[in-house]
Design a protein around this nucleic acid. Sequence first.
DNA 1: ATATTATATTGCAATATTACGATGTATTGA
DNA 2: TCAATACATCGTAATATTGCAATATAATAT
Lengths: 109, 109
Amino acid sequence: MGLTKTEIFTDEQNQLAQLLKAMAHPARIAILQRILKSNTCICGDLVEELGLAQATISQHLKELKNAGIIQGTIEGVSVCYCINPAVWKQLELQLGAFLGSYKGEPNCC
Amino acid sequence: MGLTKTEIFTDEQNQLAQLLKAMAHPARIAILQRILKSNTCICGDLVEELGLAQATISQHLKELKNAGIIQGTIEGVSVCYCINPAVWKQLELQLGAFLGSYKGEPNCC
DNA sequence: ATATTATATTGCAATATTACGATGTATTGA
DNA sequence: TCAATACATCGTAATATTGCAATATAATAT
């Protein structure tokens, strides 16, 4: 198979899983950290700074963009990527609620 | 390929990516939500409640266990799974720092 | 118009993931 | 001991992901 059965889960579960999946790669975490740090946008500096080929970086950027986590605007010859505030905030809320719902009660295993 | 180049990233990036990856599937999110809700442990109730085969559930549980997010102890004939408090707390901290480092300054794209 | 620069897309090979049936294993109860 | 119950593991098919070279595209500069 290799095909997730999305139809048996809630929209919220599928959506959260998709956002997590988009971030679940060290290169994409590195890209996001880089965008967060130099809050002013970046472009293909990534190709030099990370040790991956240009095609690979472009592909990772595309995945982050498809998930809605980042957005890019053309800026002359290069492209400027930055965080999509709405999605980032939603992710923060959804994940916060999810992670925060654990109350660590020690009556178990 | 299909092989992540982990050696070019920091331990923190690789570790966070691995934790996110373990959670980045709707079935595994559903499993975690179920564990969080009935904070008292569960077992193969999941097979009935989610619409997946027993082998599939077992496989997802194994992945969560391998990532360290949950732990299981044998309880008679069944197995009791619950959250690993240390890893959960670490995830909360690491993700909180990561997500919280975005200050939403609107000087960009 | 043409070259240059920056990024995207395509095509491919290697590997990973998802899901399940079938089978193995360990514990309890009769 | 033997059956039943609850999981785990194996094997397999379908599909997805990762990474790159090669090539395409789009914008600016000459």
